[in-house]
Design a protein around this nucleic acid. Structure first.
Lengths: 208, 208
DNA sequence: CGCAGTCTTGAAAGCTGTCAATGCAAGTGG
DNA sequence: CCACTTGCATTGACAGCTTTCAAGACTGCG
C-alpha cells in the first residue's frame, strides 16, 4: 500500500523503535509521515477511560500519513522492532502539488482504505462476535489474494483482536476455542491456522 | 460526505430521483459519480439477511464517488426528492491525471472522510448506546462549526439513526425518551432540538 | 525455579435486542 | 367529514449475547 517511494536517498530520517514503543500519539503535532520499512505497528484510537479501538495494522511498505491537521488523529505502537523512514509532511504535500502521478497514487490508496473502512463499519455495527472473528481470521489468513492460507501474525494478541473487533479478550478467547472445537482452526502456541476457510465464510454470511 | 466540487458547467447529466428511490446499489457497475445538487441521500451497506449499516448521509454539494472498482461498494437512497449531476467516472479520473489541483482536492476530501470514519470505528466498537446517540445528536446539531444549534434533519427516521449507530429503533427511541426526560433535548413532531449541548458532551466523555 | 504477563474458562450481571402491543399522524376513499 | 388504512414511534416484558468479575493454566524469561 506504499503511497510514494520517498526518494530521500539519505537515511538520516530512518528511525527504529523497539517493541511496544508508542511512536505516534494523538497529542503529537503531525509533522511527519512514517513509512514502514520493517516490522509492524498497531494503529488505534482511545477513549479517556482507556477503551481502545484498533483502526488497523501497518506492515512493511505502508505509510502512516500525517493528515493536514495540527495533530495526528490516531496513535501507533510498534508490535515488534520497527523501522520507519520519516518523511516531512511538507515534502509529500509539495510532491502532491507538483506531480499528478504521486497525488493520484495517494488518492487511490486513500480510496482503498475508505472501502475497507466502510466494510468495517458494517462489521462493527451489525455483525455478531462470531461473524466478526470469522471475518477477521479470513482477512488475516487469506490476504495476498492467493489461495494460500497464512497463519495469523503471532504478534497480534487476543487483546489486539478484541480491540480490533470491538469485543473483549474473553469473548475472543471463547470464540477461538469454539472454532477450534469445530475444527475450523488450529492453535499451536500463539499461531492460528485456518483449517476450513469455506465454513468460516459460511459463518460470515449465515449467522446460525 | 465527499467534498469535491467539479465545476461541470453542462447540466445535461442532471437527474432527479423521488423519495426512497435507491439510485445506486452494490450490484451496479460503477460508471458514474453522483454530485448532489439538492435533497439528501442515505448511504448504506447491507448484509444478505437484511441487516443494514448506514455509512453516512449525503447533502447538497457532496459527491458520491465511484471508486475504481467494477461495482459500487455501497448503496444510496434518496431521503427526499433528490437532484444529482451524473459525472462519468472517466471524466473525473482524467481531470485527476491532468490537474494536480483537482486531484489534491479529492485527496483532501478523502482524507477528511478517513478521519471521520476512524472516529466512527471507535464509536461503533467501543461506545455504549447512550454515548453513540449523544455523539450523533451533537454531530447533527452543531454542524457548520458555529455555536448555532440545528435541529436534526426530520428526514432521518429512527430506523436511520439506529442503522447509523449500530442499534435498533427501539433502543434509539428509548434513549431519546430518556434524553427528553433529562431535559437534554426537546421533541416536537419528528424534529429534535438540542437543549443542553454541554451535558450531551459530558455523556460522550463520561459514561456514567 | 519462580515471576509476570497472557490466555483460558466459569458464573453471574447487564446492556441491548427481540417480540409484541399501543399510540399517533397523515393519507385515502366513501 | 368520518371510518379505515398505513407507516412510524413509543413502551413494556423478556430473552440472549456479551461483558464483567474471578480464578487458574500456560508460556516466556530472568
Amino acid at each position: 500500500m506504499s503511497l510514494v517511494r520517498p526518494s530521500l536517498s539519505s537515511d538520516g530520517m530512518k528511525r527504529t523503535f523497539s517493541e511496544r514503543r508508542e511512536f505516534m500519539t494523538e497529542d503529537m503535532p503531525a509533522s511527519m509521515h512514517f513509512h514502514v520499512v520493517a516490522g509492524g505497528a498497531r494503529l488505534f484510537k482511545s477513549l479517556p477511560d482507556g477503551r481502545r479501538q484498533i483502526i488497523g495494522f501497518a506492515h512493511k511498505g505502508d505509510v502512516l500519513p500525517a493528515y493536514p491537521c495540527t495533530r495526528y488523529h490516531y496513535s501507533a505502537e510498534a508490535m515488534r522492532t520497527l523501522q520507519v523512514v520519516c518523511v516531512p509532511a511538507p515534502y509529500l504535500s509539495h510532491l502532491h502539488e507538483t506531480s499528478p502521478g504521486a497525488c493520484a497514487a495517494s488518492l487511490n490508496s486513500a480510496r482503498q482504505l475508505l472501502v475497507s473502512l466502510h466494510n468495517r463499519l458494517l462489521m462493527l455495527g451489525r455483525q455478531t462476535a462470531r461473524e466478526r472473528l470469522a471475518t477477521f481470521l479470513l482477512g488475516q489468513g487469506t490476504r495476498m489474494g492467493s489461495g494460500e492460507l497464512w497463519p495469523v501474525d503471532p504478534a497480534i494478541s487476543r487483546a489486539d483482536m478484541a480491540d480490533f473487533l470491538g469485543l473483549t479478550t474473553e469473548t475472543v478467547s471463547r470464540l477461538l476455542s469454539a472454532f477450534h472445537r469445530e475444527q475450523l482452526i488450529s492453535r499451536e502456541r500463539r499461531a492460528i491456522h485456518i483449517l476450513d476457510p469455506d465454513r468460516l465464510r459460511a459463518i460470515v454470511a449465515h449467522p446460525e
